[in-house]
Design a protein around this nucleic acid. Structure first.
Length: 225
DNA sequence: TCATTAAATTGTT
DNA sequence: AACAATTTAATGA
């Protein structure tokens, strides 16, 4: 069994393509693995591929002029990202870093553009994904101004399990508390406290370098008592 | 397979 | 932010 064929068989948008479109897509994908902490792409560099996470976790981040690290989003298994830069044919605006061992599927820009011009199924997927992401980012702004640290941790965790953006995510995610802190924009100890509290409420359990979620809806709708 | 060591993650001050 | 404790991963017998 060829790994490249498997790559797309497990991909949501591939199911929306016609046989001919799928065939072209298959010829345009390659696979690459990244070790923990390694850069997929630095800000300012070009990456002429639309990228899907087969396994592992990638963060989209930047380092401020004062040297502070910020994480804007985490992309889990089944998620695809980078269509913005590929569409505009420009360098990446953010750092892409693998959190833990990560396998990526990479679709070359020419094939991406062909699908964009020719496939309605592909465009349906793109619109759905952009819509979902926009909703999440708007909610992030709202939440960061309104909610308590504990609730923010709960929401950010729940989002890593978003079934539209990351269809392959299962019950656990391999992420350390430090990375989670960067993602939620909180201190490490605030995240640690929040996790312990959420664990005592049986919404999740904490292991080292891993969070196991027991009640996803509970996290998503979490409200401080 | 088990023991030792190194590295990374989490807890505490 | 720095240090200590804990757990995992890696190495070699």
């Amino acid at each position: 069994m060829n790994g490249r064929i498997d790559l797309l068989n497990d991909t949501v948008w591939a199911r929306e393509l016609t046989a001919d479109e799928l065939d072209r897509a298959r010829r345009g994908v390659s696979e690459k693995t990244f070790s923990r902490g390694s850069y997929v792409c630095h800000r300012g560099d070009r990456l002429d591929y639309w990228t899907g996470v087969v396994s592992g976790l990638v963060k989209i981040s930047a380092i401020s002029v004062t040297g502070k690290a910020m994480t804007f989003a985490g992309v889990g298994a089944g998620g695809w990202f980078g269509e913005g830069s590929v569409l505009k044919d420009e360098p990446r605006r953010y750092d892409l870093v693998a959190i833990g061992e990560t396998r990526l599927a990479m679709l070359s820009r020419p094939v991406f553009m062909w699908l964009f011009e020719n496939s309605t199924g592909f465009n349906r997927f793109l619109v759905r994904q952009l819509n979902e992401r926009l909703g999440q980012f708007i909610a992030t702004i709202e939440h960061d101004r309104i909610l308590s640290p504990k609730t923010r941790v709960a929401r950010h965790l729940a989002w890593l399990f978003n079934s539209v953006l990351y269809p392959d995510t299962r019950t656990h995610i391999d992420i350390g508390q430090e990375e989670l802190a960067l993602l939620a924009g909180l201190s490490r100890q605030a995240v640690s406290k929040a996790l312990q509290s959420l664990e005592s409420e049986r919404l999740l359990s904490v292991e080292h370098g891993r969070i196991v979620v027991h009640d996803l809806d509970g996290l998503l709708d979490y409200e401080e008592q």
